[in-house]
Computed example of a mutant assay.
Amino acid sequence: MSAFSAFPAFAAKNVARVSVAGGIAATTLLLLAGPASAHVSVQPQGEAAKGGYATINFKVPNERDDASTTKVEVNFPAEHPLASVMPQPVSGWKVDVTKSKLAEPLKMHGSTITEAVSKVTWTATGGRTGPGIASGEFQQFPLSVGQLPEDTDQLLFKTLQTYDNKDVVRWIEAPKEGEEEPESPAPVLKLTAATDDEHGGAADSATAGAAGAASKQDGAQDGAKSGDTKSETASASGSDTTARVLGIAGIVVGAAGVTFGILAGRRRTA
């Protein structure tokens, strides 16, 4: 066999080796990237504005191949307590809301709040697809929360994810700006700047609009009254002028009559 005839077989073997090596490298990268991207996260529906209310979703993926997630515990930040937390029902899950006494009472809508939510726990009860979050799936847990703080840009929720094999993953590490993401980062809710249409703003706007409309109506009525008064004044003034003209005309006619009578008398005498 010549060197030229053996070259295709040699090249084919090398290509196969490169392909196998590339596949192993790609698989390794996917395995390394999988756990880092499959952490618990929280996102608002729309925006979470400071000082307002928002609906937020905790997204919990299952990162195990041989176990299902059966319990999720979300701890609320004690330094920024939230007095109002309402969970949306999730099929196949039981939810428990835990409240704790506050070190310092909160003022909200004219009321004093002495306790706030410290933890929300979802526990799998079973369903059509089986208990909990199966391998390769994720589940969202919605909450309506408020009133959001105005003195911070984010809220950190330390979360525990429990599997049916009793393993517990603690998503409790705080991400730091400018640094790599930690191995088990806690869910972080980013807050946006406060707006004018937060809770209660619509009522204030409606009240202001009604007051403005009433003010315009009163102004229109006052204008109508003023116009009527001016019309009456103009009418009275016109009547007075007419009377004066007629009076003067009568005097002139009378004087002319007297003069005519005197002249007529003189002619008869002559």
Rank of each mutant, 00 (worst) to 15 (best):
E173M: 06
A9N: 11
G136E: 00
G23F: 09
S111Y: 11
L263D: 11
V42T: 05
Q147C: 12
L148C: 03
S239D: 08
S41P: 04
T241D: 02
G201A: 07
F157C: 03
V85W: 01
S37M: 14
V120W: 00
K94H: 10
V85N: 03
K50A: 01
P44Q: 10
I133D: 00
P44V: 05
L160Q: 12
K119T: 01
L32E: 08
P61R: 05
T125M: 04
D151N: 15
A194W: 06
T242N: 06
F76A: 01
A174Y: 10
M108E: 14
E63D: 15
P149D: 06
V188T: 13
R64G: 05
V95T: 11
T125F: 02
E47M: 13
T233A: 14
E63F: 11
A220W: 07
A208H: 06
P77T: 08
R170C: 05
K94E: 15
E150H: 11
Q45G: 01
V15F: 10
S237I: 01
V258M: 06
K59P: 00
G212R: 10
F157H: 05
G132P: 07
G34P: 03
T207K: 12
R268Q: 10
N62Y: 04
A26N: 08
E183D: 13
V168K: 13
T125L: 03
A21D: 12
I133L: 01
